[in-house]
Design a protein around this nucleic acid. Structure first.
Length: 657
DNA sequence: ACCGGAATAC
DNA sequence: GTATTCCGGT
C-alpha cells in the first residue's frame, strides 16, 4: 500500500503541472490529458481523417466507399476525391496524383497501405486508427450494403471481457452506456468540443473546416480551461469524426445501415465493451483508452493513454476479475501471436526505444500469407502471458533494423540543376517522416537495467545514427518497413515525443507481450494477413497498473490487499504478471538492441573509432496510475452537459474556401 | 496506376 | 509534422 501510494503521489507530482487548476471538479489531470495537439501540421484536418469522413457519408459513396475487408476502401472517383480534398484544404490544384502522394505518405506511418492489384484501393490500418484513434469508427457506412462490419478484434479475449467498464458514474446498461449520449458519448462530445478548438480555432484558410469552433460551448478554445479537464486533446479529431457520423450528426446516414446493428459486438470477443467500430449512431464508444496519443498523428504513439473521459478503466466499477483478465491477456497474447504482431507494440519501458524490425517494404503486403498458424492452443487456459520465448533468445533472423541501402538520389534540384551542393542529404534523421529514428533520438535511453545487461552500448539514437551517416558512410537509409507490425514503431516514435514523465503513465499498460518471433519456426510471417488483419490488435487497455516492476526483482507474489482503492489490488496483480513479462521482454529487447547495435557499431567502427555513449539514464519507473484513475472517473460526472452542448453544435459541413 | 525522393509550404 | 508539388522510375 504505501508503495502504491507512493507511486501515485510521485506520479502526480510529476505529472501534473499546470493542471492543478482547481476549478472543476477539483481534480487535476495529468499533463497528457491537457496536452494539446502540438504539431501544427496536425492541427488541420488530415487527409486520412478526411477520407474517413467521406467514407462515412453516404453522399460520397459514389466517390469513395468501403470495400472489401476491414478498412479497405476504394476511391471510385479519384478526381472527385481530390477535388473535395483540395476544396477542404483550399488547394484548388489538388489532383489525384498529389492526393495519392499524400496517401502514400501514410504508408510508412502505417495508417494506410495500398491494396495491391486493386486500383484506387487502399486500406486503413485500423489498429491505429480505429483502435487507438478512432475506436469507434464506423467503417461500414457504406450504403452499398457492404456489411463492413467492424473488424472484429482479433480474437481477443474470448469472453466478454468487459475490462473497462463503461462510464464511471453513469454506468448504464452495457449497451446503453456506450451509445447514449449521456454516456460515454458525451465524453466524446466534450472532447470534440475541445478538440475543435484546437483544430480550427484560427481558421486559417478554410473557413471553418468544421464548425467546431463554436462548439465547445464556449470554448475551450479560449483557453477554456474548463473542459480541459475532461477532454483529451488528442482525441479531438477522432472524436469529431465520430460525432459527425454518429449521433452528432443526425444527417449522417440516415438509415442506411443499421446503425448499431451488427457493428456493435457487444459481447463477444472484444475485450472492449463495444466493438471498436460501432455504428454511427450508436457508436459504441469506448475503446480502450487507447491512446489518444496517437495523436492524430498517426504516427503517434502511445500505446495507451488513458483518457480521462473515455477511459473505461476509470470507471467506477472498474472491476474485472482475474480470470477475465487472464483470459484477456492470454487471448491478446495469442492474437498477437497469430497475427504476428510485434511484441514491441507494447513497450514497457518507455525509455527504451528499440527500432523495430522491419520487413521489406514491399513484400510485406503482398505476401500472401495466410497461414498464420492457427491459433495455438494454449495449453493451459489461463496462463496469460508466458510466451515461449526464452529470455536470452535471440532470433537470428530478426534484426531490428533493416537497412535499405541506396545511393543517395539526387534531389530534384540537384537533378535539375547543379549538383554541387547538397543541401540536405537525406539521411536517416531527416526523413520526412519516415523513420522514427529522429523521434527516437533524444529520448532514447536505456533503462537502467536494460543496458546494464548487455553491456552494450548500443546506442541507437538518432544522433548516433546520424553520425553514422554523417560520417560518410554510404548513406544508409533506415526505413521502417513494415506496416503492421510496425505499429509499435510509431508508438515508439511518438513516445519519444512525449515527456518522459507522461509517458510513464501512458505506458503502463497492459501490454501483453508476445514473443516476437515465433519460436517455432513458423517463421513469422510478417503479416499473416495483412490485408485484413493488420489490426494490430488492440492496444490493450492498460491496466491501471503501476509501474513496471523493476526488472531486477522477481515479481513478488501478488500482494493481496494493498489497501488503497479497490482498483488497485488487481492492478498489482497484473502488474506482477507484467513484471515477468517485462523482464523477459526487456531481455529480448536488449538482445535486439545488441544485435542492432552491433551492426551499427560495425559500421561505425569501420568509419570511426566508434564512440558510444551510453545513455545510461536510469529508467525511472513509470508512474503509476493507481487510484488516481479512479478518481478521474468521479470527475467525469458533470461533464455531460457540456458535452451535449458541444455535440449539438457540431456540424459536418465544411466550407468552401 | 503507383512509388517514393526531394524540396517546399504552412 | 503534414501535406503539396514535382517528377523520375516502374
Amino acid at each position: 500500500m504505501s508503495q502504491i501510494q507512493h507511486k501515485v503521489e510521485w506520479r502526480r507530482g510529476k505529472k501534473r503541472r499546470a493542471e492543478k487548476r482547481p476549478g472543476q471538479a477539483g481534480f487535476a489531470f495529468p499533463d497528457w490529458a491537457y496536452k494539446p495537439e502540438s504539431s501544427p501540421g496536425s492541427r488541420q484536418i488530415q487527409l486520412w481523417h478526411f477520407i474517413l469522413e467521406l467514407l462515412r457519408k453516404e453522399e460520397y459513396h459514389d466517390v469513395i466507399a468501403w470495400q472489401g475487408d476491414y478498412g479497405e476502401f476504394v476511391i471510385k472517383d479519384p478526381d472527385e476525391v481530390a477535388r473535395l480534398w483540395g476544396a477542404r484544404k483550399c488547394k484548388p490544384q489538388m489532383n489525384y496524383d498529389k492526393l495519392s502522394r499524400a496517401l502514400r505518405y501514410y504508408y510508412n506511418k502505417r495508417i494506410l497501405h495500398k491494396t495491391k492489384g486493386k486500383r484506387f484501393t487502399y486500406k486503413f490500418n485500423f489498429n491505429k486508427l480505429v483502435l487507438v484513434n478512432y475506436p469507434f469508427i464506423d467503417m461500414g457506412s457504406t450504403g452499398s450494403g457492404v456489411p463492413q462490419s467492424a473488424p472484429p478484434l482479433p480474437s481477443a479475449a474470448g469472453t466478454h471481457f468487459r475490462f473497462p467498464p463503461s462510464t464511471p458514474s453513469d454506468m448504464l446498461s452495457p449497451n446503453e452506456d456506450l451509445r447514449s449520449p449521456g454516456g460515454v458519448f458525451s465524453a466524446v462530445a466534450r472532447r470534440m468540443a475541445r478538440g475543435s478548438v484546437s483544430d480550427c480555432s484560427d481558421g486559417t484558410s478554410r473557413g471553418g473546416e468544421r464548425g467546431l469552433n463554436g462548439g465547445g460551448g464556449g470554448g475551450p478554445g479560449g483557453g477554456g480551461g474548463g473542459y480541459r479537464s475532461m477532454i483529451h486533446p488528442r482525441l479531438s479529431h477522432e472524436s469529431l469524426f465520430r460525432m459527425y457520423g454518429g449521433a452528432g450528426n443526425p444527417n449522417a446516414h440516415p438509415g442506411s445501415r443499421g446503425p448499431l446493428g451488427h457493428r456493435v459486438h457487444p459481447d463477444n470477443l472484444s475485450p472492449f465493451p463495444v466493438s471498436p467500430l460501432p455504428g454511427p449512431g450508436g457508436a459504441g464508444l469506448i475503446a480502450p483508452p487507447l491512446s489518444p496519443a496517437l495523436s492524430l498523428t498517426p504516427s503517434s504513439h502511445l500505446p495507451y493513454t488513458p483518457s480521462p473521459s473515455l477511459s473505461p478503466m476509470l470507471g467506477s466499477h472498474f472491476s474485472f476479475n482475474p480470470e477475465e483478465m487472464k483470459r484477456y491477456l492470454q487471448a491478446h497474447h495469442q492474437s498477437v501471436y497469430n497475427y504476428h504482431l510485434s511484441p514491441r507494440a507494447f513497450l514497457h519501458y518507455p525509455n527504451v526505444i528499440i527500432p523495430q524490425p522491419h520487413r521489406l517494404a514491399q513484400d510485406k503486403r503482398e505476401l500472401a500469407h495466410p497461414h498464420p498458424h492457427s491459433t495455438h492452443p494454449h495449453s493451459g487456459h489461463s496462463h496469460p502471458i508466458h510466451h515461449p520465448l526464452h529470455l536470452g533468445e535471440e532470433p537470428p533472423h530478426l534484426s531490428p533494423f533493416k537497412f535499405k541501402l541506396q545511393p543517395p538520389p539526387l534531389g530534384r534540384k540537384q537533378r535539375d540543376g547543379s549538383q554541387d551542393h547538397h543541401p540536405r542529404q537525406s539521411s536517416l534523421s531527416s526523413g520526412s517522416g519516415s523513420l522514427s529514428s529522429s523521434g527516437l533520438g533524444s529520448s532514447l535511453s536505456f533503462g537502467s537495467d536494460l543496458n546494464s545487461a548487455g553491456g552494450s552500448g548500443l546506442i541507437s539514437n538518432s544522433s548516433s545514427t546520424g553520425s553514422l551517416n554523417s560520417t560518410g558512410l554510404p548513406k544508409i537509409k533506415v526505413e521502417p518497413i513494415s506496416d503492421i507490425e510496425s505499429e509499435e514503431e510509431v508508438e515508439v516514435t511518438d513516445i519519444s515525443d512525449e515527456d518522459p514523465d507522461d509517458r510513464g503513465d501512458e505506458y503502463d499498460l497492459f501490454s501483453p507481450r508476445h514473443p516476437r518471433p515465433h519460436p517455432n519456426g513458423t517463421s513469422s510471417h510478417p503479416h499473416p494477413h495483412d490485408e485484413d488483419l493488420d489490426e494490430d490488435v488492440f492496444k490493450a487497455p492498460a491496466p491501471p497498473s503501476s509501474e513496471p516492476a523493476e526488472p531486477g526483482d522477481t515479481p513478488p507474489p501478488p500482494s493481496p490487499a494493498q489497501g488503497q482503492t479497490k482498483c488497485i489490488p488487481l492492478k498489482l496483480r497484473f502488474k506482477r504478471r507484467w513484471s515477468e513479462d517485462q523482464r523477459m521482454e526487456a531481455m529480448e529487447e536488449q538482445d535486439d538492441k545488441k544485435v542492432r547495435g552491433e551492426k551499427e557499431r560495425e559500421r561505425e567502427t569501420e568509419k570511426n573509432g566508434g564512440m558510444q555513449e551510453n545513455g545510461a539514464g536510469s529508467a525511472p519507473s513509470p508512474p503509476t496510475l493507481g487510484g488516481y484513475e479512479c478518481s478521474l472517473l468521479l470527475a467525469q460526472r458533470g461533464v455531460n452537459q457540456d458535452l451535449h452542448q458541444a455535440t449539438a453544435q457540431l456540424s459536418l459541413e465544411n466550407k468552401d474556401c
